[in-house]
């Protein structure tokens, strides 16, 4: 049973505000090893901010986050919690791979260079080993022919697959996807989702923010519906999509299904 697997991500009562705006109002959630958790919800609901707090790209104002048992970004002292030094946070981030909506590939490096960069300069891998690993990963995402291409020579879908390979190269404990297909032309979404589904089936621990309901149904162990900085509803894909309990979830799903029908 999935519930007996170790906890990889624990989010406990996390609050985050930007100035007067409270974007996370006490989030609780967990991801177990090998699980794929999909977070859905309207824009501005705090989904992306939640991901960014998990690898400490954003500080939190209250609560705590553990990844593989480690408190992320902070340490507990006798005088309360203190932020960890930048160097320690950097080490912690190695545990969490992240794929961004806008790819953020390094434009001055080839596909191979992008994937090799962190293994060599962060993990200290030997160049030869890094090349071998990067080549295998790029083959895995179907880009074995594009090793020497620069990002601007690749399509959006190809760039995003390089970004996935780049994150995987750090052998993270958890992979996070922040609307990884939202910036893509419709015909390129499928190739990225296929890679993500393959990863999920191989047992990667994944936390996915997406508007692709098909992917959620197919790959998610659990779906979280967020709105207004809280988790409104949580359950299996069947429960959330077929029998949503709250009016907010029903309204959101109606709107999403409507817009995806309009696209066709």
């Amino acid at each position: 049973m999935a519930s007996e697997r170790p906890l990889m991500v624990q989010v406990e009562d996390v609050h985050k505000r930007f100035g007067p705006l409270e974007v996370l109002k006490g989030i609780n959630m967990t991801v177990r090893k090998g699980e794929t958790i999909v977070i859905i919800g309207p824009s501005g609901s705090g989904k992306s901010t939640l991901l960014r707090t998990i690898n400490h790209l954003e500080r939190i104002d209250k609560g705590r986050i553990l990844v593989d048992g480690q408190l992320m970004g902070y340490r507990e002292t006798a005088h309360g919690i203190k932020e960890l030094p930048e160097r320690v946070v950097a080490r912690q981030r190695e545990m969490v791979g992240m794929v961004f909506q806008r790819f953020n590939l390094f434009p001055h490096m080839t596909a191979l260079g992008n994937v090799m960069e962190a293994p060599i300069h962060v993990r200290g891998l030997k160049r030869r080993d890094a090349i071998q690993q990067a080549t295998e990963l790029l083959n895995k995402v179907g880009l074995g022919q594009k090793l020497a291409s620069y990002p601007h020579e690749l399509s959006g879908g190809q760039q995003q697959r390089v970004a996935i390979a780049r994150a995987l190269a750090m052998e993270p404990a958890v992979m996070m996807f922040d609307e990884a297909t939202s910036a893509l032309d419709p015909e390129l979404v499928g190739e990225v989702l296929n890679v993500m589904e393959q990863l999920a089936h191989e047992g990667m621990t994944m936390l996915v923010v997406t508007h692709e309901m098909g992917f959620a149904r197919e790959a998610a162990d659990n779906v979280l519906f967020m709105d207004g900085g809280v988790v409104v509803e949580e359950g299996t894909p069947e429960a959330i999509f077929d029998h949503p309990r709250t009016e907010r979830a029903r309204a959101f799903l109606r709107a999403v299904l409507q817009s995806s029908r309009d696209e066709r």
């Binding site: 981030r93 961004f100 953020n104 780049r166």
Partner: peptide
């Protein structure tokens, strides 16, 4: 976004700047 990507890969400030 470049800085964020570098940080997310575990790079320190110095590495992010230099690389």
């Amino acid at each position: 976004g470049q800085v964020e990507a570098a940080k997310a890969l575990g790079m320190t400030y110095t590495k992010t700047m230099r690389r």
